[in-house]
Amino acid sequence: MKFKVIVFTAIMLCVIIVSCQSDAEQEFKRYYTGGAVIYKDKCQNCHGNNGEGLSAMIPPLTDTAYLKKKRTVLSCLVKYGIKETIVTINGKAYEGTMPANVDMPPIEIAKVLTYIGNSFGNKMGTIAVEEVNSNLEKCN
């Protein structure tokens, strides 16, 4: 009897873990596919099909270490753009302006960041809307 309870609990636990995982997985997919559409509309012109950027003019989105380090400010960069700042990507300095997207709702910022953060060699997992909201409060 005791054994049965243990087995049952173990099975239930497994089921819960698997279903939770697939929830997370589904959420990721929702963010990622939505983000791909936004990327095409808002980012691809400059940053390219494969996040390759454009010569020395527009930085690529392939610097995995940079994106990881700047994870908490990425939302601010998407929303407010970049002005006359030099950013160093893949060891190369880029100077210029990135247009702002002040009207982009946090959920879209989250989706597009999830897309970029998991494309072009990046593996950052889901960047959820809650994370974006809390990061946006800290923009300067």
């Binding site: 012109n45 390219g48 454009l54 010569s55 003019m57 527009i58 302006t97």
Partner: peptide
């Protein structure tokens, strides 16, 4: 040079 819309992709293709 400050065109935010279609110029980058035009000149990517022109390259």
């Amino acid at each position: 040079t400050t065109c935010p819309s279609i110029c980058p992709v035009m000149h990517r293709n022109m390259l």
